Simulated scan of single mutants.
Amino acid sequence: MIGMIGIVTIFAMVFGGYLLAGGKMAIILKSLPFEMIIIGGAAAGAFLISNDSSAVKHTLKDIGKVFKGPKWNPQDYSDLLCLLFALIRIAKQNPIEVEHHIEDPSNSAIFSRYPKIQADEEAINLICDTMRSASMNYDDPHQVEEVLDKRMDATLQHALHPSHALQTVADGLPALGIVAAVLGVIKTMGSIDQPPEVLGKLIGGALVGTFLGVFLAYGLVGPFASKVKTVVEEDSHFYFLIREVLIANLHNHSAAMCIEVGRQNTPAHIRPKYAELEEALKAVKQDAA
């Protein structure tokens, strides 16, 4: 919703201010389709040249994040801590039993309590792979921590690629606007024998290209890239929470301490409150009993 409000605000302020200043939309509207073909088409072509098919699909999909926002909400973080608490508790009490859950999470009664988390492949793989490493009796938990850090850095960089791709397009749009403007000037020079009123409209149409390139770059595509990056980084806290809790478990802390470590390392605006989380963990204990 806030993304749509931002787009409406941009158009209202830019074109509203132009009209209030006495500007006329006729020249812009007449030139807009042709300038958009040149600038938008060139930008789309450059985007396709600089990215492979999977990156193109990933970027187009991630544009929706501008309007949807982060995937994970505070309740999801609370559910994640409850899920990890249940798994760690079982692993400490009965290591054999926890293997059934981490080897087949799609049919696990514990994972099934949290369908949103269960449906996220990255979260499930991160939990199961790390707990599987713990079951292999690693002598040095720092080895697992190092592997996790490299894996999560690689995953984050991959997730940030769409924002980089969009930002590259945004960086190129002003130059493509100049290309369209130069073509408009060339067209104008071909009609140099026309009267001033005709030349004025042709020059105005050419300048629409410069305007459109800058407007798209800094008013739409650039902010889209920034928003996608913000949402990806926000969602990454969910996976870093998994890391914090499971690394604490590798250091042989109690299940409750592992969860508290994760809770305190969660950003304040999405951090579950201590009292509410305690109630949720009590419910987990009762279900296990």
Rank of each mutant, 00 (worst) to 15 (best):
Q167E: 15
A86K: 03
I270T: 01
A283W: 06
G209E: 05
C258R: 02
D149V: 08
T188F: 04
A86V: 05
T266K: 05
I110D: 00
E260F: 00
A288C: 06
Y18N: 03
Y18I: 07
N249R: 11
H58I: 03
G209K: 06
A44V: 14
H158R: 13
M136A: 13
R151H: 12
I96P: 00
G177W: 02
H269M: 06
A268N: 00
G41P: 12
P70W: 04
V147N: 08
P267Q: 07
V66F: 08
P162D: 10
S135H: 09
E244R: 03
L20M: 13
Q143D: 11
G41A: 14
H142F: 11
A275D: 13
F238K: 02
I96K: 11
M152D: 05
A280E: 02
L81E: 01
E233W: 07
Y218T: 06
A288M: 15
A289T: 10
F240W: 03
L29Y: 10
D235M: 02
L156V: 06
E234S: 15
R243L: 00
K229R: 15
G45M: 10
H164N: 12
L277E: 01
N252E: 12
T230P: 04
H158T: 15
T188S: 15
G209D: 02
V56F: 06
E234Y: 14
K30N: 10
R243I: 06
I39W: 02
F224A: 13
I7D: 06
K116P: 00
D120N: 09
S135R: 12
A181M: 10
V198E: 11
D171V: 07
P272Q: 05
D76R: 08
M257E: 07
A283F: 01
I39C: 00
A206S: 12
G22W: 08
L29N: 12
L48H: 08
L20E: 08
A217V: 11
K57N: 13
E260K: 05
A12G: 08
G45Q: 09
I186T: 07
T59I: 09
H237M: 02
E121T: 13
V66H: 01
T9N: 08
P223Q: 07
L166G: 04
A256M: 00
I247Q: 04
R263C: 02
